[in-house]
């Protein structure tokens, strides 16, 4: 299932990584921030990220973590945004996020690069399965399905990346989470 996700997501232009545990995740994310040349980073707190001690990771990557001020400004200023996703769909290479909270919507959309962090056990086989799972509970206020970077083909049908949303989408899967063990 993971393999098929990777194939589909890469075909859409998503960059896919997988690490065993939080320690490896920290190293990788630091490297990714640095390689992206990001100077300002915005993120949305979540248990998965808290466990990674992101403040340290960002500063180790020699970037500034934006925390103060309005979320609109922060998200618009950042070179790179980090949020967590809940589900991934292997069939289509899609990431799914409950984006009801405003910061999650803006941090995942406004900066030119987005880094999604995702527990591996959120992987689902098919789109239908994902919809059926969601239908079983209360539908969140704002559900975001993201498949690859923002794209357009509106001028002469030439595919161009990064119109309104991020031009780069990176996802880091973490196999094993602190206190939960691997699955």
């Amino acid at each position: 299932m993971y393999e098929s996700f990777v194939t589909k997501a890469r075909a859409l232009g998503t960059e896919v990584y997988r690490v065993d545990d939080p320690a490896a995740a920290k190293q990788l994310i630091e490297k990714l921030i640095r390689e992206a040349g990001a100077k300002k980073v915005a993120l949305v707190p979540a248990p998965l990220l808290d466990a990674l001690d992101m403040e340290k990771v960002v500063s180790a990557a020699r970037a500034e973590l934006l925390t103060a001020g309005s979320v609109r400004k922060r998200a618009d200023e950042a070179d790179l945004g980090i949020t967590t996703f809940d589900l991934a769909i292997a069939e289509t290479g899609t990431l799914v996020q409950d984006a009801t909270a405003l910061d999650r919507r803006l941090v995942s959309m406004l900066p030119p690069v987005h880094l999604a962090v995702m527990p591996l056990d959120g992987l689902t086989a098919t789109f239908r399965q994902a919809i059926a799972n969601l239908a079983a509970g209360e539908i969140p206020g704002y559900l975001a399905f993201v498949s690859g970077p923002s794209r357009t083909a509106d001028i002469e049908r030439v595919l161009t990346i990064g119109v309104h949303g991020p031009g780069r989408l990176i996802v880091v899967f973490i196999d094993e989470q602190e206190g939960r063990g691997s699955r």
């Binding site: 899609t94 009801t100 539908i139 975001a144 399905f145 498949s147 690859g148």
Partner: peptide, 16 residues
């Protein structure tokens, strides 16, 4: 297979 973004909105959400 799917568009880059599929958005499902159910009721009003927070805004600034």
């Amino acid at each position: 297979h799917i568009t880059s973004y599929v958005t499902m909105i159910t009721g009003p959400v927070p805004a600034e």
